[in-house]
Nucleic acid binder design. Sequence first.
DNA 1: TTGTAGGCGTTATCAA
DNA 2: TTGATAACGCCTACAA
Lengths: 332, 332
Amino acid sequence: VYSTIKDVAKLSKTSVATVSRYLNNRPIRLDNKTRIEDAIKQLDYSINVAAQNLKTNRTMSIGIVIPDLIHNFDINLVKGIQNKIRKSSYHTFIMDTENNIQFEKDALEFLYSKKVDGIILDPISNNEETLQQFVDAGTPIVLIDQKLNNVQAPAVVSDNVNAVYNCVEHLLTMGHKKIGIILGPQDLFTAEERYRGYKRAFEDYHIPMNENFVKHGNYTSEGGYKCMLELLEMHERPTAVIVSNYDMTKGALIGINEKEVTIPEDISFIGYDFYDLTEIYKPRLSMVIQSNIEMGELAAALLIKLMDGESVEHDVYRLKTNFISGDSIKKL
Amino acid sequence: VYSTIKDVAKLSKTSVATVSRYLNNRPIRLDNKTRIEDAIKQLDYSINVAAQNLKTNRTMSIGIVIPDLIHNFDINLVKGIQNKIRKSSYHTFIMDTENNIQFEKDALEFLYSKKVDGIILDPISNNEETLQQFVDAGTPIVLIDQKLNNVQAPAVVSDNVNAVYNCVEHLLTMGHKKIGIILGPQDLFTAEERYRGYKRAFEDYHIPMNENFVKHGNYTSEGGYKCMLELLEMHERPTAVIVSNYDMTKGALIGINEKEVTIPEDISFIGYDFYDLTEIYKPRLSMVIQSNIEMGELAAALLIKLMDGESVEHDVYRLKTNFISGDSIKKL
DNA sequence: TTGTAGGCGTTATCAA
DNA sequence: TTGATAACGCCTACAA
């Protein structure tokens, strides 16, 4: 049902080699070119990608491995990547691991079996052995959002440290001293960095920091809810709270509503990544918005460079976050 | 760098045919089998998919074409599809068209060039000619969310009519008679169906319906905002409003907040698809939640059937929606 | 049940 | 610049 180069060659009275050359934009005599173009149109010819892949041993594909597409953050990473990839001749396999470590492993194995030309990975676990396969095969990897120490790959991350530093600084200048923070799992790169920013701000302002105000959720709504309740039930509760991802922002708000605490009268609030709430929540919430689209675009650009055999300048790229100022912070 | 069937055959002292048979789960003598398995492990062999595709003329892939992954609705369709596909031997190409008609066309052309074995499509426009290519090539298509009249493909849709019917019915029994509704573009399948449900409820209850309360947005936040303002600025404004998708729900709320109208005192509110707001908004919003994961699962199941050469029973499958009851409806 | 051999559609080499 | 031809790795008659 499909026509082949051979058919085109026959109809255009040239050879397969010439047609192939035409298809790959190599010089061709003009009269051949026009006849080939006619033949292609007439036969509705399109290249057989499988045969091409087989021959060239390139699939012109990259794998994107992402924790959970339900999050705006993750989707925007993907959108950023697509923005760049769309203009290239690569295409993508989007693998949603649903925060499941086994699915992540499966996804990487799948991509390996597909012989993708490159990988962009937002890891939830440490698939050292699996990733090593790619390294061995010369398939470049770019990490995004999280860093992994034991794999040789550049990383594109948020400037987590300064994002939180700026939040704390802002709250301090608004008169807050008792500032709660709900972080991700203790051993996670992003959570560690955000904690560093938190701590550093207190140090720089010579204000004592209270470790009891630092909570570690697991980046889920339930985690945010639980941590928020813990903070609210403290004998001396914080006057402000920073919540460090989308789901926990949601969970924290559920907790706040349940306890009938009001923002910002009873507690000042800074969320993360939940853009819609800066527009529709009452009061409009202050929010850290990560530059996730730009992160995706950069990661894709780096990967393309690597796949083209070039090298990249840095080991880690940090992108600034945006702070959307709402009405959720009270001046003390 | 990669090893081939030939290598495995050599090492296991069998033949390529036997190894191939083993790989495709056909009967093999036990001692051969174990030696082959050893060899595969030792050589870290994995099949070359390109060669397989070339030979079998099947790619074992399906294309998913979706308007905008930023929407929970769309992502959940994809997740539903993936749930089913993960258990099959197919894999997916996820194409986010970003509500761009040209991107949709590009996506379909891309999938055609990839020779996918099937398509699941949530169309934003009518690519009759492009879709006909798939039909001609014998590639099955399943439509999701929207129906297209001129293409021969089963569709999995929401029970839009009864979803809105039930909303109106609920509002009527709560004493509302002046019920506004913000629908999608007039010519869109979902909008038409929802309008039918709206109208039918008034008819069944013998209550006069006011066409002026029916607004058509374009399924964007701005559209919802604009329509909401129009309703609020009417001389005799509705006492309740139904907003019929995620983005317009968001836009409508922005309008409501801007006009300093309160829910439900000044206006009762039913949204669509924005699940989070049933948990964190004050007051908790009543919301229609479409069974999008199930829709995805069903669409994938149907497509697999079609790809296996079987036929499906119906032309259109309607899935029930869920109604989450919040505190946003006032009893009159 | 096994092995040999031909061919899928493309690219790349080489001689013309 | 062109055309003939040999791979690429897999599958599948066919013969054994």
